[in-house]
Amino acid sequence: MVKVMVYPPTSMILSDLVERMGHEALVISKEVRKKINTPGLDSPPLNITPEDAKRGLRYAAVDVPSGVRGRMALIGPMIEMADAAIMVQGDGCNLGCTGCARTNELAGFLLRTKKIPLLELRYPEDETEAKWFVRKIREFLEGLE
């Protein structure tokens, strides 16, 4: 079993595929859950505090917008933990954690340069493409040790 980061990290479909193949999916909902289950709500609704934006300095410089750094405080540690990754582009509408295009570009760059097994795909637009999409992901996941 390996830790597979999925991107967008909010994707339920990708995380389900990863889990079905016996691996651990790294998804943002788990990170956010840790935040909101922490006693005390400093900054509802996500309980991300200005300290998180400072922790994000590990991934982006101080002149990078605070929203990017705050998001990277969640996504960055997941990238560090990842043994493999699946990235899907062109899924149309990303909101919330993936609502910032600059964060998505930075996360993509960090995953590509991490030198881990990485599968990059386009979001399928019809049934044929969807079948091919699932097959490619299954083959990739089966090939992971």
């Binding site: 509802p44 200005p50 998180d52 934006a53 910032c100």
Partner: peptide, 15 residues
């Protein structure tokens, strides 16, 4: 908006 909840300041805006 874009970003206040990830900058940890949504609570400040509401306050």
């Amino acid at each position: 908006s874009c970003g206040p909840e990830y900058s940890g300041i949504q609570g400040e805006l509401e306050k």
